[in-house]
């Protein structure tokens, strides 16, 4: 389903002072497109994602999915995968995957059948009766992806889904989930700090400026999805990485020689 972000600005008050988080964001997402939002810390990437999912209303502008304006969360329209997994510790894995279906009033048998199918797709079929505490971080994140896919959403919103994982797990999990998402043909919006993640996953990378977040640049990644891990070692990848590195540097207001991945000095 097509998504339009029209003149979206977000301002909020924190500790008595007004913070302008996003300013005049205009974007269009095509059906089945994978878009990565890349930008320095605090540039409003997650705030934008929260607005896209209806968890927050923009101060100005609107977000339109299909023909309707996004005003409230609707997991069938857009489902979230959070960085901290946010699985319910008292429920087993099958019930965690089916929690959105339960909220939607889907019967137990149908719910469990759908959850089991998704666990099989994620390579976790034997873990259905386990509890989240018994699974590794990578496995829990796969459960969180399955929970979102269970809603069969038009759009998948992923907020730094691999931020809490080690490099090795990120890579292998990235490859397997990328395959699943390509097969599902959902529109995906991924918030990330990682240049590699953005290039490896996305069809288009949106680079945002430091606060207030604005769209600074867009880069198309023309390699077809799903991409093999070997793509990371190719020359194209290195060139795109270098291009995005310089853009990110500029986004942070540094000169072109400075390292944008180092913390900003006062």
């Amino acid at each position: 389903m097509r998504m339009s972000i029209n003149d979206v600005s977000v301002t909020f008050t924190r500790a008595g002072s007004t913070v302008e988080a996003l300013k005049d964001i205009n974007l269009s997402l095509h059906e089945g497109e994978f878009v990565a939002l890349l930008g320095p810390s605090g540039c409003g990437k997650s705030t934008l994602l929260t607005c896209l999912g209806g968890l927050m209303t923009p101060t100005k502008g609107e977000i339109v999915v299909g023909d309707s304006v996004v005003e409230n969360p609707d997991p069938r329209r857009a489902a979230f995968v959070f960085q901290d997994y946010s699985l319910l510790p008292w429920k087993n894995i099958l019930d965690n995957v089916g929690v959105g279906l339960r909220f939607a009033g889907v019967g137990k048998q149908e719910r469990r059948q759908r959850s089991q199918e998704l666990l099989e797709m994620m390579g976790l079929s034997q873990w259905g009766e386990s509890h989240p505490g018994q699974l590794s971080g990578g496995m829990q994140q796969r459960v969180a992806v399955a929970r979102a896919l269970a809603m069969d959403p038009s759009i998948l919103l992923m907020d730094e889904p691999f931020g809490a994982l080690d490099e090795q797990t990120r890579r292998s999990l990235g490859e397997s989930i990328s395959t699943v998402l390509t097969q599902n043909k959902q529109t995906v919006v991924l918030v990330t700090h990682s240049l590699d993640e953005a290039i490896y996953w996305a069809d288009r990378v949106i680079v945002m400026s430091a606060r207030p977040g604005r769209v600074m640049a867009e880069v198309q990644i023309r390699q077809p999805r799903p991409r093999p891990l070997e793509f990371i070692a190719q020359e194209d990848f290195a060139q795109l990485r270098s291009q995005l590195f310089l853009m990110l540097n500029e986004a942070m207001g540094h000169d072109q020689q400075a390292n944008p991945l180092e913390p900003q000095r006062a």
Binding site: P73, P75, F80, S86, L88, K91, F103, R147, M151
Partner: peptide
């Protein structure tokens, strides 16, 4: 708050948030 965020994002009603999220979380 993350549990409440999950409830809201996945479409839980007020009653479902109370009895399926808050109560077991508080148990």
């Amino acid at each position: 708050p993350t549990m409440l965020k999950v409830a809201k994002a996945f479409g839980a009603s007020s009653f479902q948030t109370d009895f399926l999220i808050k109560l077991p979380s508080a148990l």
